[in-house]
Amino acid sequence: MAGPALLLIALLLATLGQAPTARAEPNVHIYAAASLGDALDAAIARYEASHAVNIVPVYAASSTAARQIANGAPAELYFSANERWMTWLGEQGITLSERSDLLHNQLVLIAPRKDDASSVALDKPGELVARLGAGRRLAVGDPAHVPAGIYARQALQSLDEWQTLETRLARADNVRAALALVERGEAPLGIVYKTDARASNRVSELATFPAASHDPINYPLALVGTSPSDAASAFREWLAGEQALAIFQDFGFAAATSDAH
Results as ranks from 00 to 15, higher is better:
M1D: 15
A2V: 13
L6W: 12
L11Y: 06
L11P: 04
A19P: 03
P20M: 09
E25Q: 15
E25M: 13
P26Y: 04
I30C: 00
A32T: 15
D41W: 06
A43G: 15
A45I: 14
A45L: 11
E48L: 00
I55Q: 10
P57K: 04
Y59K: 01
S62A: 07
S63Q: 07
S63M: 01
T64D: 14
R67P: 02
I69H: 06
I69V: 06
N71C: 02
A75R: 05
F79Y: 12
S80L: 02
A81G: 13
T87P: 10
W88I: 00
G90D: 09
G90T: 03
G90L: 04
E91D: 14
T95F: 05
S100F: 04
S100P: 00
D101L: 11
D101A: 10
H104G: 15
N105Q: 11
N105L: 05
L107H: 00
L109P: 04
I110P: 03
P112I: 04
R113F: 03
R113K: 11
D115H: 07
S118K: 14
K124W: 05
K124T: 10
K124P: 03
P125T: 08
G126C: 02
G126K: 01
L128P: 06
G133R: 13
G141Y: 00
R153E: 15
R153P: 03
A155C: 03
L156D: 12
L159E: 06
W162Y: 04
W162F: 01
L165S: 04
L165V: 02
E166N: 12
T167P: 05
T167R: 14
D173W: 01
R176H: 07
A178I: 00
A180S: 12
L181R: 15
V182H: 09
V182L: 07
V182G: 05
G185D: 13
E186H: 05
E186C: 01
A187G: 04
G190C: 01
I191Q: 13
T195I: 09
R198T: 11
A199H: 07
S200E: 10
S200M: 10
N201T: 11
L206E: 09
A207H: 08
A207I: 03
T208A: 13
H214A: 05
I217N: 09
Y219F: 14
L221A: 12
V224M: 03
G225W: 01
T226V: 08
A231R: 06
F235H: 04
R236Y: 01
E237P: 00
E237L: 08
L239E: 08
A240Q: 11
E242I: 00
A244L: 01
L245A: 09
A246F: 06
I247T: 02
F248I: 01
D250E: 14
F251C: 06
T257S: 13
A260T: 14
A260C: 04
H261I: 02
